[in-house]
Simulated scan of single mutants.
Amino acid sequence: MFRASVAAFAAAITFAATARAETAMPFALDWKFEGPAAPYFVAIDKGHFAAEDLSVEVSEGAGSLDAIPKVATGAFPVGFADINSLMKFLDQNPGAPVTAVMMIYDKPPFAVVGRKSQGVAAPKDLEGRKLGAPPPDGAWAQFPIFAAENGLDMGKITVEPVGFPTREPMLAEGQVDAVTGFSFSSTLNLIRLGVAEDDIATLLMADHGVALYGNAIIVNTEFAKANPEAVTGFLRAVAKGWKDSVADPEAAIAALIERNPAADPALEQRRLQMAVADNVLTDWVKANGMGDVDAARMAKAIEQTRSVYEFQNEPDAKLYFDPAWLPTDGSLTFE
């Protein structure tokens, strides 16, 4: 069973104590301050968190495998991480007090991004070529499902372990023929590096048979049980931040640039708009609102995960996603 540290226990007590007034809810991102992080800064700047009596500070991350333990130990009450990585974490750490409570990437950005000039334009083209993949990458973790769904022979693909900082530069320089990554990150990073846009093939795994969900807001369940109103308020503020960012992406990026002045505003606005169009504002979300998941699709996602990952314990969707804290006041719907 998962055992929280003394420090984590103390942190949980601190979180609970502040709930009577303004609740401190530091938020652990999975990645850097890039376009898709802008909605959380909008929620701060527009006072959406303050309206819920919340004090929120956003911290950068180094991938989902970094964000999940931060929340599980109580170092952060809330975070942002890939739900598929969360499944495996909970399987390996049964009883860990962490679960997803609000789906953000209804359609995950897991992708294979290749260069047409190097022969990669479709999934089958990966055979006989070199694929760059960072070992901790969420997209790489799902690649076996993508390969199985598209009948790829893994023995014919040369996998080159690469670091996150060198992934796109290696593809731009022709050292690999394709990489795994998030669609809006790898694609735009290549453009920034000077690769012609019409030379880039972005193969979104969700368009090629992968039924998985993507990143979600995750919560420390001990904190959530002690502070249910704070968690629901946090999710309501997040939804407002996303809706504001959809309505005015330029203003959203201005909020981001305040936190990351070195970023390219035009590039990050495009990255945000790609995430909205491809991952957040899907047809399902337009019809049902953001935040929840479809039970049948979630069951299929678990089965796809089971096909490439040997669960130590019987998988249970209720452990990975709990909609109990989602607001029910209509704040999750897009007009």
Rank of each mutant, 00 (worst) to 15 (best):
M102I: 02
V113N: 00
P123M: 04
Q92K: 15
I145R: 07
T73Y: 11
A51Q: 12
G138P: 07
D137M: 11
A148M: 13
F146W: 04
K130D: 10
F146P: 00
P108R: 03
E60F: 00
F76G: 05
E127Y: 02
R129G: 00
I83A: 07
D106S: 12
K107V: 13
L86V: 07
A37N: 02
L86R: 02
G95S: 05
Y105K: 11
M87K: 12
G74W: 06
I68S: 06
I44D: 06
A67D: 07
I104D: 03
Y40P: 07
V56Q: 02
A67Y: 05
V42Q: 05
G151H: 09
N84K: 12
G61W: 11
G151E: 08
V71C: 02
A141C: 00
T99K: 03
F41N: 07
A72C: 13
E57A: 15
P94L: 10
G114K: 02
G128Q: 02
A43M: 11
F143Q: 05
A148D: 13
G138W: 00
D53C: 08
W140A: 13
E60W: 01
A67C: 14
A81W: 09
Y105N: 15
V98K: 05
P144T: 02
K116I: 14
S85K: 15
L86H: 03
K70E: 08
K70A: 11
Y105R: 14
A96P: 03
I68G: 03
L90M: 13
P39W: 05
N84F: 09
L65K: 14
L131V: 06
S117V: 09
A96S: 01
R115E: 01
A81Q: 03
A122D: 13
Y40G: 09
N84L: 12
D125L: 01
V113W: 00
V58A: 01
P144A: 04
V113M: 00
K107C: 10
L65D: 12
V98A: 04
G114R: 01
A133S: 14
P144W: 07
V42H: 03
A51R: 10
F143S: 02
Q118I: 00
F41A: 04
A147S: 12
N84W: 06
D106L: 04
F49H: 01
I104F: 03
V58G: 03
M87F: 15
G151V: 11
G114M: 01
A43Y: 08
